[in-house]
Structures are given as C-alpha cells and as structure tokens.
Design a binder for these strands. Structure first.
Length: 348
DNA sequence: AGAATTTGACCCAG
DNA sequence: CTGGGTCAAATTCT
C-alpha cells in the first residue's frame, strides 16, 4: 500500500480519529438519557468515518502508481486500474474508478451569507472561474442544487468542482461544497479563495500588535482587540513572532466545524475557530464561531462546548499577495465577553 | 460565432 | 428502485 499522496494519509488518520471521538461521544450518550435518534446519528457518523477510511485504504492499495508531475490525484488516467490490461473500455473504466476516487477528493463546505436575494453571483465568486454544468432538485429541499466545475477542466485538466445550495433555514445563506483543489493556473484574480485547501495548509499566525496590557473593561478590551488583532497568513517557513498569538490548524487542512483552527496564547489553548459564515470575497466580512477546545493525546483539538453566541467577525483584506492577509476583529456584541479573555494568562 | 447556461436523460451507489 | 451527480444537446447570452 502506498499512501504517498499526503492528503490521503491525513484524510485516513482524520477519519480514524473522528471515528474514535464519535465512539467516545456515543459511549457518553449511552450512559445518559439521550434520545435514540442522537445515538443513531452518532452511530451513522461512526460507520461513515470507518467506511471512508476503508475506502481510502482500498483505493490507495489499488492505485499505487505515482501521478505524473503536474497532475492531481483525481484526474482520469488510463492507468488508474492497475490490474486491468489495456482494452477498448479502459477509458470508460478509468472514469468509473475516478468517480469512486472523486468521492475521496478533499471536500470542504462553507456557508456564505448574501446581503440581498439576488446576491448569489457575488456570494459565490471565490476568485476562481467556474462553469455551471447542472442543476438538480434535491429531495426535501426547497431550493435546487447547482453544480459547477472549473472552467479550465478541459484545457488544464483541473478537476475542482463545487456545489451551491441555498439554505433551508436562512435563504440568505448559501452552502458551497468544494471538491478537489484547483490545479489550473487561472489569470490572477488578486484574491485567493480564503478557504481553499492550499491555503488551509499554510501556516497561520495572529499578530497581536501593541496591545495595552493594563486592566480594562471587557468592552474596552474587545474594542482594543478589534483594532489590533491581525491574522497573517503566510506560505510556509517561520516568521519572527513577537506576538503572543498563534492560530494553528487543528487537523490536516480543511477548516470545518469538525476541523477547527485553534487559538493559542503563549502556547495555551484559548479556543478554536471554525467557519460559521465565510465569504469568499476578500472585501466582505467573514464570521467564525469561537469555542473552547482541548488537545488530545493525538495532538488533535476538540471543541468542548461550542456556544453560538461566541462569534468572531473577521474582515479579510485583499493584498497583492496571492495568499493575502486576514484582519480579524472581534465583535463585542456577538462575542461572549468572558471568552476567551477570562482564560488564565490571557493578559499576562 | 463562441461561450455559458439550461434541462432532460443517463449512470450508478446505496 | 431511488436520488444524487454528470453528461450533452438545445438554448441563451455576449
């Protein structure tokens, strides 16, 4: 078996860890008076996790050939079926295997809130060029789901796709599910998609600049942080960190509600960021929920008791850099004033 | 005219 | 068998 593809290995580990965590949750549920529905849901998620892990293992075992340079694991390739001698139906067979593999492509979802009913185009403009290839009415859903693929699919063999669906509860929110990362070279759109997997793998830091460490009221502190908190997203390497803040990926890449970013202060875990509503447009406000979390023996972070009231609003600022800077601010209205600022050592 | 979207048909996993 | 995802011909847009 060859798990040379890094994301596969990480996805596998991630699925297994998630399975363990869900099993622990189920154990707690079994000893409490929780509903059978929630137990069943947990059981389903556990089975799904191990199912995915098995699929990854199976797939990794059957596709052992290294991918040619410049191609992405997920591109149809006549050599996909290792045990098949060349035949006329190879192409078709390749696609069948790819459809299996496409399921294993890294996926991540983000929710985008739009200001107006007709704001879909702007909301889904994530800096990449997409071609719509289908729309489907989904059972039980009020709104249809739209399917998009990269415009450069044919010319550059870029197999990134996305699905866009309007939220049932709040029609101003669109759930965008991305699958596969872009391998194309698009004409620079100046704005890199903030939640792209490439970016998720980058090192993330928070600079806390010129922070006044004297005692202040909660609101003052929040207002001060609003002005001074800054998240700098950089590509690899180390930068000098005069700041006590750091923001790190909890897991292998995609920032999801189950895979948050942690917020550290002098090495102490204060909380985690997970996307609530993330706008792809650099000029728009993004919303991240903040919840306390802890690190387990695997080095994975886990949310403890997420609270909806704990919201950080973050403004992303477009820069000339393809990576871009994220300027975080904290909204004192939405944020629980006691979190995370009441954490021990926060103002040390 | 070429690019993009729409939409019914088809495929296939569950 | 059903529903989600994709294809591709028809249609619309630029």
């Amino acid at each position: 078996m060859d798990l040379g593809c890094n994301w596969e290995q990480k996805a596998l580990v991630n699925e297994l860890i998630q399975g363990i965590e869900l099993a622990k949750q189920l154990r707690v549920e079994l000893t409490s008076a929780s509903s059978s529905e929630s137990r069943e849901a947990l059981l389903q998620r556990i089975l799904s996790s191990y199912d995915k892990a098995l699929l990854i293992l199976k797939w990794s075992g059957s596709v052992a050939q290294p991918q040619p340079a410049g191609t992405y694991a997920g591109v149809p390739n006549s050599s996909v079926s290792a045990d098949v001698s060349p035949r006329s139906e190879d192409f078709e067979r390749g696609f069948k295997d790819v459809s299996k593999k496409r399921k294993l492509l890294p996926t991540w979802t983000k929710q985008v809130r739009v200001g107006s009913e007709n704001g879909l185009d702007g909301a889904t403009d994530d800096g990449y060029s997409w071609r719509k290839y289908g729309q489907k009415d989904i059972l039980g859903a009020t709104y249809p789901r739209s399917y998009y693929r990269c415009t450069y699919r044919n010319t550059q063999s870029c197999w990134a796709t996305k699905q866009v669906q309007r939220s049932e509860e709040d029609p101003t929110i669109f759930e965008i599910t991305y699958r596969g990362k872009h391998t194309c070279h698009q004409a620079s759109n100046s704005v890199a998609p903030p939640a792209s997997p490439e970016k998720q793998e980058l090192k993330k830091h928070i600079h806390h600049q010129n922070y006044n460490q004297q005692q202040q009221s909660s609101n003052d502190m929040l207002l001060n942080l609003r002005a001074n908190l800054r998240v700098n997203v950089e590509e690899g390497g180390n930068t000098e960190m005069a700041s006590p803040f750091s923001l790190s990926s909890a897991s292998f890449g995609c920032m999801t509600s189950e895979n948050p970013f942690s917020m550290l202060l002098n090495g102490d875990l204060l909380g985690s960021f997970s996307p609530s509503f993330i706008s792809p447009a650099a000029s728009e406000s993004n919303y991240y929920s903040v919840s306390p979390c802890q690190m387990d023996s695997f080095g994975q972070f886990h949310n403890l008791q997420p609270k909806e009231s704990e919201i950080i609003s973050a403004n992303t600022s477009a820069t000339n850099s393809p990576i871009g800077d994220l300027d975080f601010s904290i909204d004192p209205v939405d944020l629980n004033p006691n979190f995370p600022f009441d954490s021990p050592g926060f103002f040390d």
